[in-house]
């Protein structure tokens, strides 16, 4: 159809940027979630307080406000980032804060007896955490992480407001040029929806891989 020929290439270009934001943001968020999630559990105040402040601030404020704040405030502190990098940074910080809670609660859900058995076998805290606890916590983290990933995808649309030409921005441009509002936005929504399903399917695959030793037996 002529409609698709006109719009699809531009939209797919925008989608590419959206995916860059999603992947970059997700990697940063995962790293921050791991550090902050573990930090919140630490008995040392020096580790706990920064982690708590980070999580409360980025969960308690609006993602769009965070985006604008970083976009306008960073240059004042001498840091000049392009819109894509700012987007990845803010999305990562925002999703990482929610992810930290997922990490923390999954670790807390592993039975206390596992820690005790590890200690009774002379494992130190670090060995117990990485070899006994985390392998059991990881499968529990994946379903909520999948939801956070879809949230992150949706948040990439916000970066259009600091003039990055990702999918939403591109759709707006196309709309302004052709005024075919309904079909265009319908197509855009369909693309986001499809992308979300692909991400969720990916996470489910990862879930199956991580729990492969527990399936199909007595």
């Amino acid at each position: 159809m002529a409609f698709l020929q006109t719009h699809l290439p531009a939209l797919l270009d925008g989608l590419r940027t959206t995916l860059q934001l999603t992947v970059g943001g997700a990697l940063l968020a995962a790293a921050l979630a791991a550090v902050a999630g573990l930090g919140r559990r630490s008995p040392r105040r020096l580790c706990r307080w920064p982690a708590n402040v980070y999580v409360e601030v980025f969960r308690g404020t609006s993602a769009l406000v965070q985006l604008f704040w970083f976009y306008f405030a960073l240059p004042l502190f001498g840091v000049s980032l392009p819109a894509l990098a700012t987007g990845v940074l803010v999305l990562g910080l925002n999703s990482g804060a929610y992810g930290a809670e997922v990490v923390r609660s999954a670790i807390a859900a592993v039975p206390a007896g596992q820690w005790e058995a590890a200690r009774a076998l002379q494992l130190d805290e670090r060995q117990a955490l990485f070899r006994v606890i985390l392998p059991q916590a990881l499968p529990m983290m994946l379903p909520p992480a999948g939801n956070l990933l879809v949230e992150l995808l949706k948040n990439t649309a916000l970066v259009s407001l600091i003039t990055l030409s990702e999918l939403t921005f591109t759709a707006q441009v196309q709309r302004a040029a052709t005024l075919e509002t309904v079909p265009l936005f319908a197509l855009t929504l369909a693309i986001y929806f499809a992308a979300a399903q692909v991400l969720l399917a990916g996470v489910r695959r990862l879930e199956r891989h991580v729990t492969r030793h527990r399936r199909g037996r007595a």
Binding site: G113, E116, A117, Q122, Q127, V132
Partner: peptide
Amino acid sequence: FQHFHLFPHLSVLDNLTLAPRLAK
């Protein structure tokens, strides 16, 4: 322990060899 606390993500053999390999 009363409730065994075996490591569910490891095979029986790995349950036994984990600590000796790590700690000793």
